[in-house]
Amino acid sequence: MTVLLLILAILPIIAGIVIKVMFVPASNGIDITGAHIFFTIDLPFGGLPISESQINSWLVILSLFFFCLFLTYGLKTKDMSKRQIVAEWIVEKVEGLVRSNMGEFFMGFGPFICAILGLSACSSLLTLVGLFPPTSDINIVGGWAMMTFILITYYKFKAGPLIYLKSFGEPVPFLAPLNIISEVATPISMAFRHYGNVLSGSIISVLIAALLTTLSQLIFGKLPGFLGEFPFLRIGLPAILSVYFDLFSGGLQAFIFSMLTMLYVSGGFPEDEYFKRKRLKEAKKQNKQAIENTNGGI
């Protein structure tokens, strides 16, 4: 069963490679293109293009889903398997992160933060198997940022709409336009930060590969036949860049995206007002009940 789940977790990635080989036209030489659009669904308000980045991100979601099932299959309290230890380690780390950054009230955010972290990191790491990374498409990352923005606004509304509106007039009321701009800029800057980092990494990698091709043609171009055309310098050297741009930058951006989500959500939440309001509401309820009780008694 565990082997089956592990195979199911790897299968989506292989399916992604197969889809890429079968349907994406091969590029001649080195060029920089965006995501390939497979087909477009016609909707009343315009076409909905289904692109490579969407398909790849769904494949990553499927793969992570089966990987989580693989890790948590057959949980025990005694003689724990290695899988269970890994799963518990992940849960403990994420809960510690959420507790230290958001506080006890937001402990329910653990799974969400872990999902964003895993999805973002694995999407960026897709470049390692040669697939198009969904995080270098602004639509995908913009969607995540919109989700974070909705969460931030929801938690700001928790203490009532009046306090939400009042938060724009701080510290002085005439700064309200600037506060509104900074409110809108939050999701835009989050999306641009993640997408720009991944995209700039892939563009710089392509430029370096083009440079190495030209250089090796200059140096080895005099060799006869196949040897003259083969780009020798492209063996190994781009891998050093890939360690930084794919492994380090991808992981760091995933961490920063989830970190900023935590900080913004817990930072915008008006804690004191919320608890005050909750206490007032409960007191009101109890008063009402007490009055009803006394009325019923009479």
Partner: peptide, 12 residues
């Protein structure tokens, strides 16, 4: 990462 944002706006 936060300080990098302005540079990334220019990059975009």
């Amino acid at each position: 990462a936060v300080a990098e944002t302005t540079g990334l706006y220019a990059l975009v």
